[in-house]
Write a protein that binds this DNA or RNA. Structure first.
Length: 744
DNA sequence: AGCACGCCGACT
DNA sequence: GTCGGCGTGCTC
C-alpha cells in the first residue's frame, strides 16, 4: 500500500475532506487504517495530526506533489476500520462533518473531557494602549484599531476569542501582529473532570424462570441460524430482563466474543452495574462521561487487548473497540438519552444496529415501556418481539388510581395533594412504609391550561400544546403559530387559566407542612449537583432514613426501594403538554415507570396519578398499565399527523447570537430549501425553537417531513454541498437532527 | 487554523 | 513607485 487517504484533524470543521499522502518505507506494513499520524500540511511546513481513513495503491493526485507521512502520532491511537465505517455511516445518516463523526467514535473524545476556551486581553496598561491606538488611527490600521478600541471599551478584562472573531472580524493575521507588538495576549484555559471509583465484587447464584429461559433459547437459536434481526424484550418492571441479558451475554462470551451493554446513565442504574459485576467479575468494565481522557482511553485499550469482555456504559460505550463483538444490549431502550445532543445527532439504537450489522453481532433491546418506534418495527417484522408480562415470583403489579384535579378544585381543595393521596400518605406514614412523590417536569416552557376544566390550548395546525413565552405570547414550536394568552378559558369560560408551574421545592415544603414530623428528602437537579449527590440521597432513602422522597423523573428510573408502597405522580400533565409530538409517549413511560416503583418488595403497592386530563389516552392507559392500548392510540396519532415512526422528520437547527441575522437567515434557508424540495417532502416552519434563546444564542428550527428516509438524506446531502457557497448562511451554526427525540 | 498571494490606499 | 494592511483561497 503506497498511499494513504487522510483526514486532517483541525478543530475547525471546514476541512471536511481527505488528503492523500505517501506511505514511507519505514511505515510499510505497520501503518493501518484508523491510525493517528503526523503529517505536514500547508505551505508553512507545519505538522498536524490526521487519521488514516484508507490505504490504497492508486494515486488520485499528481504523485510528485504528494508529501510523505512523517510518522505515527505519539500515543499511536488506533481506530478499528469498522468504527471508521460506522463514523462514515453516522455522518451520512445524521449530518455532520467527517471530523465530528470520527471524534464521536474515537477512543479519546476531546469535546467531552476537555474544554478549551481562548480569551483575548490587553497586555499593556490603558494609557499605553491608548497611545498605541492613536498611532494606529493615524496609520489607518482599521482592523487593529477596531480590536483595541473594543478591548478598551469593555469593563471586563478579557474577551472571548470566538466572539471577537465573529463580532469584530478578528483574523489570525491581525491577532498575530498585535501579539508581536505586545499589545494583546491570547490565553487558553483547560478544564479537566475527575473520575469516580468502581465498586466491590461478590459471587451470586443464578437461575432463570421458564419465561426468561424461553427468550434466551429462542434468541440464541435465531442467532445461530443467522437471523440477526434485533430483538425487543417488552417486560414489565420487575420481570427480570437483566437476567435475560446476562444469560445471553454469558453465551456470547462462551463463543469467545464480547458484549456491549448500554444503559441510560451510569449514576441512575448503579444497582444494575453491580449485578453485572457479580455475574461476570472483572471481565466487566464501565465507562461513563466523567472519566478523564486517559482513563477512557485505558478502558478502550483494555477492551481491544481482550482484558475486558463486557463493557457497560451510556451511548458512547457503543464505540468500544472490541475485536469480536457478539452482542449489543440496550436497556431501557426508550430513553431519550440514547439520542445524542451534539452533531452527529445519532441515536444509539440505530447506530448499534448498524454496528451489529457490520460485524455480525445481534442487538437486544429491552424496556417496560418500549419506544413507539421500536414497537412499530416489531409490527413491521423488522425486530423480533419477546414479552415478559409478569413480575418474578408472581409479585403483584401496583394498583393504580387516577385522581381528577378538576374535581378537587371544585371541592375547594387547591393544595398540591388530593384528598385521596393525602389519605394514603397518612396511612403509609402510620405504618412506617415509604412514599415517593414524583413531579414529571420536563421541557422548557410552560403550557397554558384551565384548572377548572383541564382544557389545554393547542396549536390549530400541529396538534401539540402551545408554549407560553415572555409577554403572554403563546407559540407553537413546530410551525411558529402565535397567539396571545386568553384571559378566560375558551372551553368553559373560567378565569382559572394559566401556565402550569410547580417545583420539587414547593412540593417538599407543602409535604412538610401537611405531614409534620415526616422525614423528607428532595432529589432533583439542584440537590444532586455536587459529586456523589445522587448516591447519597438514594442510599439515605434505601436505608429508610427518610419517609418521603420528592423528585423529578430521576427518582423513577431503575431504582429498587422495597420499602416503597405508595407512589404519587403529582401532576401528570406537566410532561403531557411539553409541546412536542413525543409528549404523550414520554408521559405514558414516566407514569408506568413511576407506578412500577411501588411494591417492589413483598408488600403490594399503590400508585396515585393526579391529573387535569384523566381522559387523555396516555393517562388512561398508564393507569391500566396497558402498553398495547397506548401504542395503538399513539400510533394512530402519529400516522394521522405523519410523525415518526409513520414518517421521518428531519429538523434543521439554526443558531446565531444575532437575532436579526438569524431571522433573515431562516427566511433564506427556507427559500433555499424550497428550491430543491420535492413533492413528497413537506416543509414546516421556520419557527422559534422550544428554547428560543440559550446562553445568548438565538435558536430557530425548520422541519422536513417525509415518509421516505432516503429523500431526506439525499436532500441533506444536497444542502451540505451548497451551504458553503451561501454567504448569508455561512455565519451561523446549522445542525441536522434526524427524527428528533428530545425537544430543542 | 495558518499561510501566501494579490489588491489597494497612503506616504516619500 | 514602494510599503504594508486586509481579504481570499488553498492546503495532498
Amino acid at each position: 500500500m503506497k498511499f494513504a487517504n487522510i483526514i486532517v484533524d483541525i478543530s475547525l470543521e471546514k476541512l471536511d475532506r481527505t488528503f492523500q499522502y505517501r506511505v514511507p518505507e519505514e511505515l510499510q506494513g505497520i501503518l493501518k487504517e484508523g491510525m493517528q499520524v503526523r503529517i505536514p500540511f500547508g505551505n508553512g511546513g507545519r505538522t498536524l495530526t490526521g487519521y488514516v481513513l484508507e490505504l490504497t495503491d492508486t494515486c488520485e493526485w499528481d504523485e510528485k506533489k504528494l508529501k510523505p507521512i512523517l510518522g505515527l502520532a505519539e500515543k499511536g491511537i488506533r481506530l478499528e476500520g469498522q468504527l471508521i465505517a460506522l463514523a462514515a455511516w453516522m455522518r451520512r445518516t445524521y449530518g455532520s462533518t467527517m471530523n465530528q463523526a470520527l471524534k464521536t467514535v474515537l477512543p479519546v473524545k476531546k469535546s467531552v473531557q476537555e474544554k478549551i476556551s481562548r480569551k483575548v486581553r490587553l497586555a499593556v496598561t490603558r494609557e499605553e494602549a491608548e497611545a498605541a491606538l492613536a498611532e494606529m488611527e493615524r496609520k489607518h490600521q482599521t482592523a487593529r484599531v477596531r480590536i483595541i478600541k473594543a478591548l478598551l471599551e469593555q469593563t471586563v478584562q478579557d474577551m472571548d476569542y470566538a466572539a471577537a472573531q465573529k463580532e469584530l472580524g478578528l483574523t489570525a493575521a491581525t491577532a498575530r501582529k498585535l501579539m508581536e507588538l505586545g499589545l494583546i495576549r491570547i490565553e487558553s484555559d483547560t478544564i479537566f473532570r475527575n473520575p469516580v471509583r468502581p465498586s466491590e465484587v461478590q459471587a451470586h447464584p443464578f437461575t432463570l424462570y421458564p419465561a426468561q429461559q424461553a427468550i434466551v433459547e429462542d434468541v440464541a437459536a435465531r442467532a445461530a441460524a443467522g437471523d440477526l434481526r434485533p430483538s425487543l424484550i417488552h417486560g414489565v418492571t420487575g420481570s427480570g430482563k437483566t437476567e435475560v441479558y446476562m444469560e445471553l451475554i454469558a453465551a456470547v462470551l462462551e463463543q469467545g466474543k464480547e458484549a456491549v451493554v448500554l444503559i441510560p446513565e451510569i449514576a441512575l442504574t448503579f444497582q444494575t452495574v453491580l449485578r453485572f459485576y457479580r455475574r461476570f467479575g472483572d471481565q466487566v468494565s464501565i465507562i461513563h462521561s466523567k472519566l478523564s481522557a486517559g482513563e477512557r482511553y485505558d478502558q478502550f485499550e483494555r477492551a481491544r487487548r481482550g482484558e475486558v469482555k463486557v463493557m457497560i456504559g451510556p451511548r458512547s460505550a457503543l464505540f468500544t473497540p472490541f475485536p469480536r463483538l457478539g452482542v449489543i444490549v440496550i436497556d431501557e431502550e426508550h430513553e431519550g438519552s440514547y439520542k445524542s445532543e451534539n452533531a452527529p445527532r445519532y441515536h444509539a439504537r440505530e447506530a448499534a444496529i448498524e454496528r451489529a450489522r457490520m460485524c455480525g453481532a445481534f442487538v437486544v433491546l429491552g424496556s417496560a415501556t418500549p419506544s413507539v418506534d421500536s414497537y412499530e418495527r416489531t409490527k413491521e417484522g423488522l425486530y423480533r418481539l419477546y414479552e415478559l408480562p409478569l413480575r418474578v415470583e408472581n409479585r403483584a403489579m401496583p394498583e393504580t388510581e387516577v385522581v381528577d384535579l378538576r374535581e378537587e378544585l371544585r371541592m375547594g381543595n387547591r393544595s398540591i395533594f388530593s384528598a385521596r393521596l393525602k389519605e394514603l400518605m397518612e396511612d403509609r406514614l402510620r405504618k412506617g412504609e415509604q412514599i415517593m412523590l414524583f413531579l414529571n417536569r420536563r421541557g422548557y416552557a410552560g403550557f397554558v391550561s384551565c384548572r377548572a376544566c383541564g382544557h389545554v390550548i393547542k396549536c390549530p395546525h400541529c396538534d401539540v400544546s402551545l408554549s407560553l413565552h415572555h409577554g403572554g405570547r403563546m407559540v407553537c414550536h413546530y410551525c411558529g403559530y402565535q397567539t396571545v394568552q386568553p384571559k378566560k378559558c375558551p372551553s368553559c369560560g373560567s378565569a382559572y387559566i394559566g401556565a402550569f408551574r410547580a417545583g420539587t421545592q414547593q412540593v417538599a415544603e407543602a409535604a412538610a407542612k401537611t405531614f409534620p414530623g415526616a422525614r423528607i428528602l428532595r432529589m432533583d437537579f439542584d440537590t444532586t449537583r455536587q459529586k456523589g449527590g445522587y448516591e447519597r440521597i438514594l442510599e439515605a432513602f434505601s436505608k429508610k432514613q427518610a419517609d418521603i422522597l420528592v423528585g423529578t423523573q430521576m427518582i423513577v428510573k431503575g431504582h429498587d426501594f422495597p420499602g416503597v408502597t405508595l407512589v404519587g405522580a403529582l401532576a401528570a400533565d406537566l410532561s403531557l403538554y411539553a409541546g412536542d409530538y413525543r409528549a404523550a409517549e414520554r408521559t405514558f413511560q414516566l407514569l408506568v415507570q413511576a407506578a412500577g416503583r411501588a411494591g417492589r418488595g413483598t408488600t403490594p403497592g399503590t400508585a396515585v396519578i393526579q391529573t387535569y386530563s384523566p381522559d387523555h389516552y396516555s393517562i388512561e392507559t398508564a393507569a391500566d398499565q396497558d402498553y398495547k392500548a397506548f401504542f395503538e392510540k399513539e400510533m394512530a396519532f402519529r400516522r394521522m399527523m405523519n410523525y415518526p415512526p409513520a414518517a421521518h422528520l428531519m429538523a434543521l437547527y439554526l443558531m446565531s447570537e444575532d437575532e436579526e441575522a438569524l431571522n433573515r437567515g431562516a427566511v433564506r434557508l427556507k427559500a433555499l430549501a424550497m428550491s430543491h424540495t420535492r413533492q413528497e417532502i413537506a416543509l414546516i416552519g421556520p419557527s422559534d425553537a422550544g428554547l428560543s434563546k440559550l446562553k445568548d444564542v438565538y435558536r430557530k428550527v425548520l422541519y422536513l417531513k417525509c415518509t421516505e428516509m432516503n429523500y431526506l438524506t439525499e436532500w441533506k446531502g444536497w444542502l451540505e454541498a451548497v451551504l458553503p457557497k451561501e454567504k448569508q448562511l455561512s455565519t451561523f451554526n446549522i445542525q441536522f437532527d434526524m427524527d428528533p427525540v428530545n425537544p430543542f
